[in-house]
Design a protein around this nucleic acid. Structure first.
Length: 882
RNA sequence: GGGGAAUUAGCUCAGUUGGCUAGAGCGCUUGCAUGGCAUGCAAGAGGUCACCGGUUCGACUCCGGUAUUCUCCA
């Protein structure tokens, strides 16, 4: 039996023998593509070749690609692990031909692709031909697309006719999206059923019918059309082959297993889970078995994504990772009854298994494991809090004699406290309650619609202005050039309307590698248009404007905002100096995990497992400033990737580098980095470097924010001015912080003394008032106008008197700052014997008389108002109640 | 990007229609008890109720904004 690694290797060797270049997998996390968070197919990294944005360096390519799918018609996250053949992360084996209109013999098309796929499956992998079925596009009358006659003819040469199935547009016409490259495809399916079953129903009747044993393993797409926004198709000048074969499925077929999880792709992980949890994997449909499959699947997705630089977070791609991880935690928590972090223990197993194919994980097992453990801990804490909340909800439901947890409550538990709905269901069941599923779904629907409406984006078709290739970026050396507008389109979203413009060549740096996009102007025919941002879509540089020039053809002058670019370059260059200094001071485990460079500051995230101490920060600052003063020339050169790595250049995990890389050197013994950003000519231009802030972003990741150049100057100026004015206020003391400490202490003790004095004063007033005590019908009555400093003191005074009189009614009035304040106190005994109520007295008698209002308890109530002339009347009125 | 929530003593948290002199447990200080420890008893200190504004006679409580954190959706 072939092992999984042998199967993978045979694929790559086979296509190498057919003239293909083997390339490495692109990172699983996608950057610079607004339509995609993760690589979800082998062709993603070649998208620009299909779109015609870029020319392919090789015409024939093959690889195995890490892919991630968590949504889509056939792969909902909630389904993974329930069956035995869907995955979040999977490997896609693929071979490609990139057509070249000028060199017809370079690539290949339908006949070769079909012949080779058959050869590989039947001769190398030795799959029984009787078990294989192929599908061919039958054509579409409505869209006027002809049937695939060439593909059919090719298949007929090698496959029996009753093994050819015709497919409609849904199954046999592939599209990249609503618009863009597309074309017919031909699929290869395998029938893995027993001989007996195959005799009963022929396999061809089960193709594309979602039968778990009759499955598609390979799809060959022939890209020959471009779909425009109005829905029409136009033929492409260059035709391409794009194929994809699910690796895990292929292994299952070749190893003759019932389930992907029984192959050696997953068996090692499952054994490890058995060892940790002390339970045995049964390969059934029960919750325990599902839990095993969920863990074995999810840990791969989580580990490789983090290794490629995407940390779990509460937004975007990071949130998808968090969700996958939490789903795994839920399963071991509920069904394997394991209540501590588990997943992180599997990282070394996966890392070892993929050491040769995807080494990026094995190179950082510690880091990935720590990040995962921290996430697991955090979620277990969230679960704890949610458990408390749901207890309260259940108590309430029981008290109200309800059998049901409302949809709103269930939704609130999820939405606000992150408590998963399946756990709510489980706990409800244990308490003989059910969950209002309809209400919950409804709330969920409302939330989804709201989010969708907020991000709706309407993109129109590109409008071609001038023919030509966009051949790129000139802005490393020139910031102002003459160019031409190639194409533009309108984009609507969030109530704003923007235009995207592509230029023949441009000095504008598009946001990437953490460096923010340039701004500037575009001038045509004396009309000046502001360029407000520059971004990349794959490798296409797109300029954003709020309006378009009235004349579009002809030469345009484009110029970058130079001052802003200078500040950005300063911050980018100093980031390199700081990165090197961090490695010097903290150690070589420091590696970049993210960065943001703009004109105002730099932000740098890096792996490090402890807080960076003040001392270490100041050593970093000193080292960087030393390097600035050395005024080192910044040397930038292009070279072969291998040579650059050999030179000691730092490459980042999760970055896709081409064979020729740009290397930025600031003193060959100090800092060498692969980098596409803009830089200063000499480090002296940076001027000065100052760290503003150090903080944590995730387990094992620290963040430093710092400034240089003008921004640093501004910061220091502001700080020293602030310091000066503080010094002035304190009459330039010898020791500033000591002086402030003294002030604070003095302020504290003065406040205490005032409090004591006021209390003492009130004692005097209280004693005077006690002298004026009248006994009316066995109740002690005190009704007086007093002078007190505050409404609070009036209340205190009232309490104080209450403590000295048992059976009482007290009315205290005071004019404080021109406003009327009244407090009424009644003893418990008077409440019952005389049917008195302080709050009622305040509301009915006092409130109207002082033109105000108030309230409180039966025993003590207070009021405030505008009218201070009616105090005697109020006292008399209340007295008469006795 | 769009929602929901949280922020009260050193820590974990109560505070139920706006008015209780803002509380509990743990921790801390002091004293007492015990040969010592574990501990027990008693007293005490400790709060800008995140911050800024508004409504109100009165705001921890209601409204708006800011910051930080959590959480869901895209």
């Amino acid at each position: 039996m072939m092992t999984a690694s042998e199967i993978r290797q045979h694929f790559l060797d086979f296509f190498q023998s057919k003239g293909h270049t083997i390339v490495s997998s692109a990172p699983i996390v996608v950057k610079n593509d607004p339509t995609l968070l993760f690589t979800n197919a082998g062709m993603n990294q070649f998208k620009d070749y299909f779109l015609g944005n870029k020319k392919a360096p090789y015409n024939r390519v093959a690889d195995t690609q890490k892919c991630l799918r968590v949504s889509g018609k056939h792969n909902d996250l909630e389904e993974v692990g329930v069956d035995t053949y869907h995955h979040t992360m999977f490997e896609m084996l693929g071979n490609w031909s990139f057509g070249d209109p000028e060199n017809a013999v370079a690539g290949y098309f339908k006949s070769e692709a079909i012949a080779w796929s058959w050869e590989l499956l039947t001769e190398i992998y030795k799959i029984d031909k009787e078990r294989l079925y192929v599908t061919v596009f039958e054509g579409d009358v409505k869209e006027n697309i002809p049937a695939s006659s060439i593909a059919l003819a090719e298949w007929k040469k090698i496959v029996a006719e009753d093994h050819i199935v015709y497919g409609n547009k849904k199954d046999n016409f592939w599209e990249m999206g609503d618009t863009g490259p597309c074309g017919p495809c031909t699929e290869i399916h395998v029938d893995c059923r027993s001989a007996e079953e195959r005799n009963k129903i022929p396999g061809r009747e089960l193709v594309n019918k979602d039968h778990p044993q009759v499955i598609e393993i390979w799809n060959n797409v022939f890209i020959q059309y471009n779909r425009k926004k109005d829905g029409t198709l136009e033929p492409l000048p260059a035709k391409h082959v794009d194929t994809g074969m699910g690796f895990e499925r292929l292994v299952r077929v070749l190893q003759n297993k019932q389930s992907n999880y029984d192959t050696d792709v997953f068996s090692g992980t499952i054994e490890a889970i058995e060892k940790i949890s002390g339970q045995k994997y049964q390969a059934l449909d029960d919750k325990e078995s599902i839990a095993f499959r969920v863990l074995a699947d999810h840990i791969r997705a989580i580990s490789f994504t983090i290794a490629d630089g995407q940390l779990p977070s509460n937004t975007g791609a990071g949130y998808v990772i968090r969700r996958i991880l939490r789903r795994a935690v839920r399963y071991y928590y509920s069904y394997l009854h394991y209540k501590q972090p588990l997943l992180f223990q599997l990282v070394p197993v996966i890392a070892k298994q993929f050491e040769k194919v995807f080494p990026e994980l094995n190179q950082q097992t510690d880091f990935v494991g720590k990040v995962i453990k921290e996430e697991e801990d955090a979620f277990l804490r969230t679960l704890d809090k949610g458990l408390k909340k749901i207890d309260g909800i259940i108590d309430q439901a029981k008290e109200a004699k309800k059998q049901i947890i409302s949809g709103t409550d269930a939704f609130e538990l999820l939405d606000t406290f992150g408590f998963p709905i399946d756990l709510t269901r489980l706990i409800a069941q244990e308490n003989n309650l059910s969950v209002d599923e309809e209400g919950f779904e409804n709330e969920m629907k409302i939330q989804k619609e709201r989010s969708r409406a907020a991000t709706a984006l309407d993109t129109e078709d590109w409008q071609t202005i001038n023919e030509g290739n966009s051949n790129g970026f000139t802005g490393y050396n020139e910031l102002e050039i003459e160019s031409k507008i190639l194409k533009l389109r309108k984009v609507k979203g969030k109530g704003k309307e923007l235009y995207q413009i592509v230029l023949e060549k441009t000095p504008f740096y598009a946001e990437s590698g953490g460096q923010i996009g340039d701004t500037g102007t575009l001038t045509i025919n004396n009309q000046v248009i502001n360029i407000i941002d520059t971004k990349k879509e794959n490798d296409l540089i797109i300029h954003f404007t709020e309006n378009i020039p009235s004349q579009l053809h002809g030469d345009v002058k484009v110029s970058v905002n130079k001052d802003r670019r200078k500040s950005i370059s300063i911050h980018h260059s100093v980031t390199h100096l700081m990165h090197a200094a961090l490695r010097n001071v903290l150690g070589n485990h420091v590696s970049q995990k993210g960065s943001l460079v703009n004109e105002e500051q730099l932000r740098f995230d890096f792996s490090h497992f402890a807080k960076v101490s003040d001392d270490e920060l100041s050593r970093v600052e000193k080292m960087v400033n030393q390097k600035i003063r050395e005024n080192i020339p910044v040397v930038i050169q292009s070279m072969n990737k291998e040579d650059a790595i050999a030179m000691g250049a730092m490459a980042l995990f999760g970055e896709k580098y081409s064979d020729t890389v740009r290397v930025v050197v600031m003193d060959p013994n100090y800092s060498i980095e692969l980098c596409g950003g803009s830089h200063v000519g000499n480090t002296g231009e940076i001027g000065f470097f100052k760290i503003k802030h150090e903080s944590a972003v995730a387990a094992g990741v620290r963040r430093i924010e710092a400034v240089s150049g003008k921004a640093a100057e501004m910061l220091i100026m502001e700080q020293s001015e602030e310091l000066k004015s503080i010094n002035d206020l304190l009459k330039n003391p010898k020791n500033l912080s000591k002086a402030i400490e003294n002030l604070q202490a003095e302020n504290n003790s003065l406040a205490k003394r005032i409090e004591a004095l006021e209390a003492h004063q009130l004692v005097g007033v209280r004693n005077e008032l006690l002298q004026k005590d009248l006994v009316i019908n066995q109740v002690n009555f005190i009704g007086e106008i007093v002078e007190v400093p505050s409404a609070d003191a009036l209340k205190k005074l009232c309490f104080d008197i209450k403590h000295h009189l048992t059976n009482h009614l007290i009315v205290l009035c005071s004019n404080i700052g021109g406003k009327a304040y009244v407090a009424v106190g009644v003893s418990e005994s008077a409440i019952t014997s005389k049917n008195l109520d302080a709050s009622k007295i305040i509301k009915e008698i006092v409130g109207p008389a002082i033109i105000g209002g108030g309230g409180g308890q039966k025993t003590l109530a207070t009021a405030g108002g505008q009218e201070t002339g009616n105090f005697q009347k109020i006292i008399a009125n209340i007295k008469s109640l006795l």
